[in-house]
Simulated scan of single mutants.
Amino acid sequence: MLTATNSLSVETVTRVHHWNEHLFTFAITRPASFRFRSGEFVMLGLPDGQRPLLRAYSIASPAYDEELEFLSIKVPDGPLTSRLQGIKVGDPMFLGRKPTGTLVADALLPGRRLYLLSTGTGLAPFLSLIRDPDIYDRFSQIVLVHSVRRVSDLAFHDTLQAQLAGDPLVQDQALLQFHYVPTVTREPFHTSHRIGTLVENGALFAPPVAGPRQFDPEHDRIMLCGSMAMIKEQAAALDALGFTEGSNAAPGHYVIERAFVG
Protein backbone atom coordinates (compact mmCIF):
# COMPACT_ATOMS: atom_id res chain seq x y z
CA MET A 1 0.00 0.00 0.00
CA LEU A 2 1.31 3.45 -0.97
CA THR A 3 1.49 6.16 1.69
CA ALA A 4 1.33 9.90 1.01
CA THR A 5 4.12 12.20 2.24
CA ASN A 6 4.64 15.94 2.51
CA SER A 7 5.93 16.03 -1.08
CA LEU A 8 3.88 13.22 -2.64
CA SER A 9 0.19 12.36 -2.80
CA VAL A 10 -1.19 8.95 -3.73
CA GLU A 11 -3.49 8.99 -6.75
CA THR A 12 -5.41 6.36 -8.73
CA VAL A 13 -5.04 5.44 -12.39
CA THR A 14 -8.30 6.26 -14.22
CA ARG A 15 -7.45 5.59 -17.88
CA VAL A 16 -4.76 3.81 -19.90
CA HIS A 17 -4.40 3.85 -23.70
CA HIS A 18 -1.63 2.06 -25.62
CA TRP A 19 -0.94 3.72 -28.99
CA ASN A 20 1.52 0.99 -30.02
CA GLU A 21 4.20 -1.21 -28.48
CA HIS A 22 6.37 1.82 -27.70
CA LEU A 23 3.94 4.55 -26.62
CA PHE A 24 1.03 4.94 -24.21
CA THR A 25 -0.99 7.55 -22.33
CA PHE A 26 -2.52 7.29 -18.90
CA ALA A 27 -4.56 9.49 -16.58
CA ILE A 28 -4.75 9.67 -12.81
CA THR A 29 -6.99 11.37 -10.28
CA ARG A 30 -6.25 15.01 -9.54
CA PRO A 31 -6.13 16.33 -5.97
CA ALA A 32 -8.50 19.23 -5.38
CA SER A 33 -5.56 21.40 -4.27
CA PHE A 34 -3.33 20.60 -7.28
CA ARG A 35 -2.71 23.64 -9.51
CA PHE A 36 -0.39 23.97 -12.50
CA ARG A 37 0.38 26.19 -15.47
CA SER A 38 -0.04 24.74 -18.95
CA GLY A 39 3.30 23.28 -20.05
CA GLU A 40 4.63 22.37 -16.60
CA PHE A 41 5.89 18.97 -15.43
CA VAL A 42 5.53 17.04 -12.19
CA MET A 43 7.15 14.05 -10.52
CA LEU A 44 5.40 10.68 -10.90
CA GLY A 45 6.39 7.36 -9.46
CA LEU A 46 5.86 3.90 -8.05
CA PRO A 47 7.23 2.26 -4.90
CA ASP A 48 10.74 0.80 -5.09
CA GLY A 49 11.44 -1.03 -1.87
CA GLN A 50 11.35 1.48 0.96
CA ARG A 51 11.57 4.52 -1.31
CA PRO A 52 9.48 5.78 -4.25
CA LEU A 53 11.02 5.66 -7.73
CA LEU A 54 10.22 9.03 -9.33
CA ARG A 55 10.62 10.61 -12.78
CA ALA A 56 9.58 13.96 -14.25
CA TYR A 57 6.59 13.86 -16.62
CA SER A 58 5.05 16.77 -18.50
CA ILE A 59 1.33 17.19 -17.85
CA ALA A 60 -0.57 16.64 -21.11
CA SER A 61 -4.05 17.53 -19.87
CA PRO A 62 -5.41 21.09 -19.83
CA ALA A 63 -5.24 23.02 -16.57
CA TYR A 64 -9.02 22.86 -16.12
CA ASP A 65 -9.31 19.06 -16.45
CA GLU A 66 -10.46 17.00 -13.48
CA GLU A 67 -7.83 14.35 -14.29
CA LEU A 68 -4.09 14.54 -14.98
CA GLU A 69 -2.97 12.91 -18.22
CA PHE A 70 0.55 11.90 -19.25
CA LEU A 71 2.29 10.58 -22.37
CA SER A 72 5.06 8.01 -21.94
CA ILE A 73 7.36 5.81 -23.94
CA LYS A 74 7.93 2.17 -23.03
CA VAL A 75 11.51 1.31 -22.18
CA PRO A 76 11.89 -2.45 -21.54
CA ASP A 77 14.80 -2.01 -19.11
CA GLY A 78 13.84 1.42 -17.78
CA PRO A 79 13.71 1.49 -13.97
CA LEU A 80 10.29 3.17 -13.96
CA THR A 81 8.85 2.84 -17.47
CA SER A 82 9.38 -0.93 -17.53
CA ARG A 83 6.85 -1.10 -14.69
CA LEU A 84 4.75 1.92 -15.61
CA GLN A 85 3.72 0.44 -18.96
CA GLY A 86 1.91 -2.33 -17.10
CA ILE A 87 -0.33 -0.11 -14.98
CA LYS A 88 -4.08 -0.69 -15.02
CA VAL A 89 -7.14 1.30 -14.06
CA GLY A 90 -7.41 1.35 -10.28
CA ASP A 91 -3.68 1.09 -9.60
CA PRO A 92 -2.15 3.61 -7.15
CA MET A 93 0.65 6.00 -8.14
CA PHE A 94 2.72 8.70 -6.47
CA LEU A 95 2.19 12.30 -7.64
CA GLY A 96 4.46 15.18 -6.71
CA ARG A 97 2.72 18.12 -5.07
CA LYS A 98 4.74 20.88 -6.80
CA PRO A 99 4.59 21.17 -10.61
CA THR A 100 7.18 23.41 -12.25
CA GLY A 101 8.87 24.10 -15.58
CA THR A 102 9.89 26.64 -18.22
CA LEU A 103 7.68 25.53 -21.14
CA VAL A 104 5.10 28.08 -20.10
CA ALA A 105 3.73 31.22 -21.73
CA ASP A 106 5.04 33.37 -18.87
CA ALA A 107 8.61 32.59 -19.96
CA LEU A 108 8.02 34.13 -23.41
CA LEU A 109 7.87 37.73 -24.52
CA PRO A 110 4.66 38.86 -26.24
CA GLY A 111 4.48 37.89 -29.93
CA ARG A 112 2.23 37.11 -32.87
CA ARG A 113 3.03 33.48 -33.68
CA LEU A 114 3.81 30.63 -31.30
CA TYR A 115 5.68 27.64 -32.74
CA LEU A 116 5.65 24.45 -30.67
CA LEU A 117 8.38 22.14 -32.02
CA SER A 118 8.26 18.59 -30.65
CA THR A 119 9.58 15.11 -31.27
CA GLY A 120 8.19 11.93 -29.73
CA THR A 121 6.77 12.37 -26.25
CA GLY A 122 7.91 15.99 -26.34
CA LEU A 123 4.37 16.54 -27.58
CA ALA A 124 3.00 16.20 -24.02
CA PRO A 125 3.38 19.74 -22.62
CA PHE A 126 2.07 21.20 -25.86
CA LEU A 127 -1.12 19.15 -25.58
CA SER A 128 -1.82 21.12 -22.43
CA LEU A 129 -0.84 24.47 -23.91
CA ILE A 130 -2.98 24.25 -27.04
CA ARG A 131 -6.08 23.64 -24.91
CA ASP A 132 -5.44 26.73 -22.79
CA PRO A 133 -7.70 29.65 -23.82
CA ASP A 134 -5.05 32.12 -22.65
CA ILE A 135 -2.66 30.97 -25.39
CA TYR A 136 -5.14 32.02 -28.07
CA ASP A 137 -5.43 35.45 -26.48
CA ARG A 138 -1.64 35.87 -26.36
CA PHE A 139 -0.88 34.73 -29.93
CA SER A 140 -2.70 35.11 -33.24
CA GLN A 141 -1.37 31.78 -34.53
CA ILE A 142 -0.26 28.59 -32.79
CA VAL A 143 1.70 26.11 -34.92
CA LEU A 144 2.32 22.64 -33.46
CA VAL A 145 4.94 20.48 -35.17
CA HIS A 146 5.21 16.83 -34.12
CA SER A 147 8.02 14.75 -35.62
CA VAL A 148 8.02 10.96 -35.11
CA ARG A 149 9.56 7.90 -36.71
CA ARG A 150 6.39 5.94 -37.47
CA VAL A 151 2.80 6.83 -38.27
CA SER A 152 1.54 4.98 -35.19
CA ASP A 153 3.70 7.27 -33.03
CA LEU A 154 1.48 10.24 -33.94
CA ALA A 155 -0.39 10.26 -30.64
CA PHE A 156 -3.60 12.33 -30.67
CA HIS A 157 -3.30 12.76 -34.45
CA ASP A 158 -7.03 12.71 -35.17
CA THR A 159 -7.83 15.23 -32.44
CA LEU A 160 -5.08 17.57 -33.58
CA GLN A 161 -5.89 17.16 -37.26
CA ALA A 162 -9.48 18.18 -36.45
CA GLN A 163 -8.12 21.38 -34.85
CA LEU A 164 -9.42 20.38 -31.41
CA ALA A 165 -13.03 20.19 -32.58
CA GLY A 166 -15.25 19.44 -29.60
CA ASP A 167 -12.93 20.99 -27.03
CA PRO A 168 -15.21 22.75 -24.52
CA LEU A 169 -13.11 25.92 -24.23
CA VAL A 170 -10.96 26.48 -27.33
CA GLN A 171 -12.61 24.81 -30.34
CA ASP A 172 -13.79 28.08 -31.91
CA GLN A 173 -10.44 29.83 -31.48
CA ALA A 174 -8.46 26.76 -32.54
CA LEU A 175 -10.38 26.49 -35.79
CA LEU A 176 -9.02 29.89 -36.80
CA GLN A 177 -5.67 30.03 -35.02
CA PHE A 178 -4.31 26.49 -34.54
CA HIS A 179 -2.23 24.67 -37.18
CA TYR A 180 -0.97 21.09 -36.83
CA VAL A 181 2.08 19.87 -38.76
CA PRO A 182 2.77 16.14 -38.26
CA THR A 183 5.83 14.64 -39.92
CA VAL A 184 6.99 11.00 -40.07
CA THR A 185 10.64 10.29 -40.87
CA ARG A 186 10.85 6.49 -41.32
CA GLU A 187 7.55 5.52 -42.97
CA PRO A 188 5.60 6.86 -45.96
CA PHE A 189 3.63 9.96 -45.00
CA HIS A 190 2.58 13.19 -46.67
CA THR A 191 5.26 15.05 -44.69
CA SER A 192 8.47 13.14 -44.12
CA HIS A 193 11.16 15.69 -43.23
CA ARG A 194 12.78 16.32 -39.89
CA ILE A 195 11.98 19.59 -38.14
CA GLY A 196 15.28 21.17 -39.14
CA THR A 197 14.57 20.49 -42.80
CA LEU A 198 11.03 21.90 -42.56
CA VAL A 199 12.54 25.09 -41.16
CA GLU A 200 15.35 25.29 -43.72
CA ASN A 201 13.23 24.65 -46.83
CA GLY A 202 10.47 26.99 -45.68
CA ALA A 203 7.76 24.30 -45.62
CA LEU A 204 6.96 25.17 -42.01
CA PHE A 205 6.01 28.70 -43.04
CA ALA A 206 3.75 27.82 -45.97
CA PRO A 207 0.07 28.87 -45.88
CA PRO A 208 -2.10 28.84 -43.83
CA VAL A 209 0.72 30.05 -41.57
CA ALA A 210 1.06 33.79 -42.15
CA GLY A 211 4.54 35.22 -41.87
CA PRO A 212 8.06 35.36 -43.32
CA ARG A 213 9.84 32.29 -44.68
CA GLN A 214 12.01 31.99 -41.60
CA PHE A 215 11.73 32.55 -37.87
CA ASP A 216 11.43 36.22 -37.00
CA PRO A 217 12.55 37.31 -33.51
CA GLU A 218 10.29 40.36 -33.65
CA HIS A 219 7.07 38.37 -33.93
CA ASP A 220 7.77 34.64 -33.45
CA ARG A 221 8.01 32.79 -30.15
CA ILE A 222 9.15 29.18 -30.00
CA MET A 223 9.02 26.29 -27.55
CA LEU A 224 11.22 23.22 -28.03
CA CYS A 225 10.62 19.81 -26.45
CA GLY A 226 11.83 16.35 -27.44
CA SER A 227 15.13 14.88 -28.58
CA MET A 228 18.39 16.47 -27.45
CA ALA A 229 19.60 16.62 -31.05
CA MET A 230 16.59 18.60 -32.26
CA ILE A 231 16.68 20.99 -29.30
CA LYS A 232 20.40 21.71 -29.63
CA GLU A 233 20.15 22.18 -33.38
CA GLN A 234 17.18 24.50 -33.25
CA ALA A 235 18.42 26.46 -30.23
CA ALA A 236 21.73 27.13 -31.99
CA ALA A 237 19.90 28.24 -35.15
CA LEU A 238 17.63 30.55 -33.16
CA ASP A 239 20.57 32.05 -31.29
CA ALA A 240 22.20 32.81 -34.66
CA LEU A 241 19.05 34.65 -35.75
CA GLY A 242 19.12 36.88 -32.68
CA PHE A 243 16.63 35.00 -30.52
CA THR A 244 17.22 34.86 -26.77
CA GLU A 245 16.29 31.97 -24.49
CA GLY A 246 13.65 32.82 -21.90
CA SER A 247 12.93 31.70 -18.36
CA ASN A 248 10.34 32.35 -15.69
CA ALA A 249 12.57 35.09 -14.27
CA ALA A 250 13.53 36.64 -17.62
CA PRO A 251 11.11 36.02 -20.54
CA GLY A 252 12.67 35.61 -23.98
CA HIS A 253 12.00 34.64 -27.58
CA TYR A 254 12.20 30.86 -27.10
CA VAL A 255 12.21 28.31 -24.28
CA ILE A 256 13.28 24.73 -23.65
CA GLU A 257 12.76 22.56 -20.57
CA ARG A 258 16.15 22.70 -18.85
CA ALA A 259 15.12 20.08 -16.31
CA PHE A 260 14.95 17.50 -19.11
CA VAL A 261 17.96 18.43 -21.24
CA GLY A 262 20.45 19.44 -18.54
Rank of each mutant, 00 (worst) to 15 (best):
F260N: 03
Q161V: 13
Q163P: 06
P251G: 04
F139Q: 02
E21A: 15
G252F: 10
T14R: 15
T102E: 15
A105D: 06
S118I: 04
Q141T: 11
A155W: 04
F24T: 03
L160R: 11
D153R: 10
K98H: 14
Y115C: 04
D167E: 07
D220G: 14
P52W: 03
H193F: 04
L164T: 09
R194Q: 09
D158V: 15
T3P: 05
D106E: 15
F34G: 07
V42I: 13
F36V: 00
P207F: 03
M228I: 14
P188F: 04
D65G: 07
S61W: 04
A174V: 12
G90D: 11
H17T: 15
T5E: 13
A250T: 02
K74G: 00
G49A: 08
T197D: 05
N6W: 10
G211R: 05
D91T: 07
S247W: 10
G202L: 06
Y115E: 05
E40H: 09
F156I: 01
D134A: 15
P76Q: 10
R149H: 12
L224V: 10
P31C: 11
R149Y: 06
E233R: 11
T197G: 01
F36M: 08
V209G: 03
S61Y: 06
L129G: 06
I59N: 09
E40Y: 05
R213H: 12
H157L: 13
D153Y: 07
L238S: 03
R186L: 10
G111N: 14
E69F: 01
P125Y: 05
S247F: 10
E187D: 07
T185K: 07
T121E: 08
S58I: 00
T244K: 08
S147W: 04
V151D: 04
K74L: 08
H157C: 10
I256G: 00
P251I: 03
V170Y: 00
H179V: 13
G226D: 06
T119G: 01
F178C: 02
F260G: 01
A124G: 10
A63E: 14
L241T: 00
V143A: 01
P47S: 08
F243V: 01
F178D: 04
Q171G: 00
A240E: 14
Q234D: 03
T5F: 11
D172K: 15
